[in-house]
Design a protein around this nucleic acid. Structure first.
Lengths: 132, 132
DNA sequence: ATGGGTTGCGGGTATATGCCCGCGATACGG
DNA sequence: CCGTATCGCGGGCATATACCCGCAACCCAT
């Protein structure tokens, strides 16, 4: 047992971190997955489901479902692209507000982690995870 | 944006790693979450759902459902503890066989990662993730 | 223009995961 | 010994995620 299974460790750490960020971002009414997805949408809206999926490395069907939840919450709007097959997503006013209100909360979480772990450590960890 | 969001990075890395291990372990018919859970069961069987959940840091209800899937697959058996409230889990013969057959596959994945990333790096990453 | 290949989606199916509620079993104080 | 508090579960509800199938739209070469 030289090195414990990195996958198990990673899954576990991921669950803990998700719980932490979910709690942090909860006041604005979304979870971290939704908040993160909305940020991605904001960056290039309107964007098609497939394009979005490719960018965030999620299955297109996953994007479709997650986006529909956001739509039901009134945070995004779905439309059609020029290509009639394409479904496009755009943030609503409410969606933008969630991003604005959530930003400081997110920053707070980030800061709290940096204080606890150190910026250098965070950077290294980040780079390490990206290399996986 | 000094440090990118560690949570997003972590979730992403986790998904990639899960996909990698799922593929690796697939030949024995389970996914990495199931394999990992079965390993935990093997270590202290018979074990109650609550005890198992505490050990692997998963919600009890999650454990219950996941274990039921394993039961349907014939890999574990559910029973009652002395305390009539308790539900206990035990690996079946088939379950043990899956662990045996899967072990070399898992080791292979581990080895492949070590070759690519280096043992030291893996150890550090592991320690870092545990500290989160 | 037309038929075949490609692309984008929606829906079905399945697992993983968490929270909450209610029920039955157990433990404990009076 | 009984009533109350606690504990362990199952089931309901919701999200995240992946894969597969089939349909409709689009693109291209003949």
């Amino acid at each position: 047992m030289s090195v414990p299974c990195i996958c198990t460790t990673l899954r576990s750490a991921s669950r803990r971190m998700i719980a932490f960020y979910d709690e942090t971002i909860a006041p604005v009414g979304v979870n971290i997955a939704q908040f993160s997805l909305m940020r991605s949408i904001a960056r290039t809206q309107p964007v098609t489901l497939t394009a979005l999926g490719r960018r965030v490395e999620l299955d297109r069907s996953t994007i479709g479902r997650n986006v529909r939840v956001l739509e039901k919450m009134g945070l995004v709007e779905l439309g059609r692209g020029e290509d009639q097959r394409e479904a496009t997503v755009t943030l609503t006013e409410a969606g933008h507000k969630v991003l604005e209100d959530g930003a400081p909360l997110w920053d707070g979480a980030q800061k709290s982690l940096e204080d606890r772990l150190g910026v250098d450590f965070m950077r290294q960890l980040h780079a390490a995870l990206d290399s996986l």
